[in-house]
Design a protein around this nucleic acid. Structure first.
Lengths: 181, 181
DNA sequence: GTAGGTAGTGATTGGCCACTAACTTATCCG
DNA sequence: CGGATAAGTTAGTGGCCAATCACTACCTAC
């Protein structure tokens, strides 16, 4: 297998593992095992652990952005919002990794920033803004709408991370908002 | 100093340190240093590291809940919403720890849940619901309103964690929503 | 066939970290 | 005084983990 192909599979494995354990809670050994490769070899493919995490985060952002882009393709306004919301729900349902990895990314950026490393955060803020802009475009460049849409998305992320089951009363406020009027 | 007083100062130190480094990125040594006590002594005051993290998370939730409770005291509907929003902004401004600790809590619960430990998450879900209920009460038990309020709060948390500066265009959507009309 | 590049491994290392055990001091009370 | 109880320490242990180094196996082109 070529190095590029390996890198690709490392990134995929890293998303899975980091999404569960976070940056500090995931060993490079764990990732290597999932890839089916020796642990030292990861350091040939990437300069270090942080670089792997960065690529995994980036990939995760890009995947979510792509879901939004496709869902909103050719649509506008309320229709786009609805399509994107549903697409995100579907994404979460069969790939909660993506959601958890986002959460891990947020705290990792905070930690890096606190440690004086701004490059890491800068790269991921850029990635995040790409997602923002895709949403914003679909919403007809209405910043208020975009913000609201993302706000609900973030609450979903948090509630899922916290392990609130779908039947829990904490979710009732969503159905009211999404369907009626 | 009595053990109870020490425990109290440990919790406060733990909030500070865990909010920066997260569960796995913060050593008990770091916390002990901040308290001004030897590291092994922490294990006399608490059964283990996770217990310290749990108490720190709990405290953080309670503090935020208390801010909401006080801000909304005697108010209702839109006035309560506004007061709580402003109170939260103020809290973030001079105590970003609280916000970061929340984020750390979310991913820690996800990790614990993934590792098969549901007690930890259950305790923190209960704490979170207390906050939810305080908001919900202030909003006249309108689940839709409550959800929306918390959704914006979560987006704020995420954007601050990600290190977006106040001047960044990502924040424009907020002012539109909060002030005009 | 041999020279060089590419994919990959085994062994190791230095450092950290949660947690334990055993010891020390100090205070309070009869 | 004496002894119990509570606060706190020093020293140590076993385990993990990121990163490095030196090595092997294979392929390709001359």
């Amino acid at each position: 297998m070529s190095a590029d192909e390996r890198r690709e599979s490392v990134i995929r494995a890293a998303v899975t593992e980091f999404s569960r354990g976070g940056y500090n809670g995931t060993s490079t050994e764990t990732i290597a095992k999932r890839v089916g490769v020796s642990q030292p070899y990861l350091f040939r493919l990437f300069p270090g652990k942080q670089a792997i995490f960065l690529e995994a985060s980036r990939r995760c952002c890009q995947d979510v952005t792509e879901v939004f882009r496709r869902a909103s393709e050719g649509l506008q306004g309320e229709e786009a919002t609805k399509a994107m919301g549903e697409a995100y729900q579907a994404l979460i349902a069969d790939d909660p990794e993506k959601l958890l990895m986002q959460m891990q990314m947020y705290v990792a950026v905070a930690a890096a920033e606190a440690a004086g490393d701004s490059e890491f955060g800068e790269a991921l803020r850029a990635e995040w803004m790409e997602m923002y802009d895709v949403c914003n475009l679909a919403m007809g460049a209405d910043a208020g709408e975009t913000t609201q849409f993302l706000a609900y998305g973030m609450l979903v992320n948090v509630l899922v991370s916290m392990g609130f089951q779908p039947e829990h009363r904490v979710w009732t406020g969503f159905y009211e908002e999404v369907q009626p009027k």
